[in-house]
Amino acid sequence: MSDADVRRRPGGRAARVRAAVLEATNQLLQDQGLTGLTVSEVARRAQVNETSIFRRWGTRENLIIDALLTDAAEQLPVPDSGTLRGDLIAYATALAKYLTSPAGNALDRTLASAGDDPATRRLRDQYWNARYAHSGQIAARAIQRGELPDTADPRFVLELLVAPLHFRIVLTREPLEPDLPARIVDALLHGLVTTTSS
């Protein structure tokens, strides 16, 4: 990325530098993977000082998490199909596709292995709170339509939806079959007894 590219980005200098560094980080993750990424190479590609990166992010891990979370937020828009089942399946399908991509897979593994220092915890909390607030619209709209009771907790609905996908990616390393999102949604909406006996 050239200096001209950085200057053309909207926002102040801090916003332009952050965007350039995160873009360089995601490019390197695609090119070299999680273990091959170095802060010095990120700095070279983003055309910023390495000390500036450490001053802002503190650690290589914090930088990687921020880059991956920013990318994830862009890759997972909230669907609005008009039905709860349709929205949940569309969201779970998009998440499954993302988690099996190099960037999404790296995100899940990085989050799973990240420590609990204050900066990492803050990034992780900010991401999940933002994602649940955003994707919680699915359940909120379903409550308005009468598809869910008004006592339903939107965050809990989303946790039940996404947990099996993250479990397979991080822990069991099993494949995510194409019909898995619909199976998860039907089990979530109708319960295992109804689903398995039909």
Rank of each mutant, 00 (worst) to 15 (best):
S81R: 10
T35M: 01
R18K: 12
D87Y: 05
L95T: 12
R122S: 15
M1G: 07
I64G: 01
T93M: 01
P102L: 04
I64R: 10
D87R: 09
P118F: 06
R13E: 12
T151M: 03
A43Q: 07
R44S: 09
N105E: 06
A72Q: 12
S113Q: 09
R141P: 05
L171Y: 14
D66A: 15
M1E: 03
P178S: 07
D116C: 04
L192Y: 11
Q32C: 03
I65M: 15
A142R: 05
G12E: 08
A142C: 06
D31T: 13
A92S: 12
R45S: 04
A92N: 02
Q144E: 15
A67L: 08
Q126G: 14
R55A: 14
L22I: 03
D186W: 01
A96L: 00
D150G: 00
G115S: 02
D117K: 06
R7F: 01
Q32L: 08
A46F: 07
I184S: 03
F54V: 04
A15R: 12
R122Y: 06
L84P: 01
A96G: 14
Q137N: 08
R9A: 06
W57A: 06
T195W: 09
V157T: 11
A46P: 04
R8P: 00
T120C: 05
P164L: 09
V17Q: 13
Q144S: 11
P102I: 07
G86Q: 04
T59D: 11
A133E: 04
D31H: 11
T110V: 11
D186F: 02
D116V: 08
E177Y: 11
E41N: 11
F156H: 13
P79Q: 08
R55I: 02
Q47H: 09
T196L: 15
A187I: 02
S2D: 08
R168C: 07
A130H: 13
D3M: 09
P178R: 06
L161F: 12
N129D: 12
L192I: 08
E177K: 08
S101T: 05
P164E: 07
R173Q: 09
D125A: 14
T172M: 06
G104E: 05
I143H: 00
L188K: 01
V39N: 10
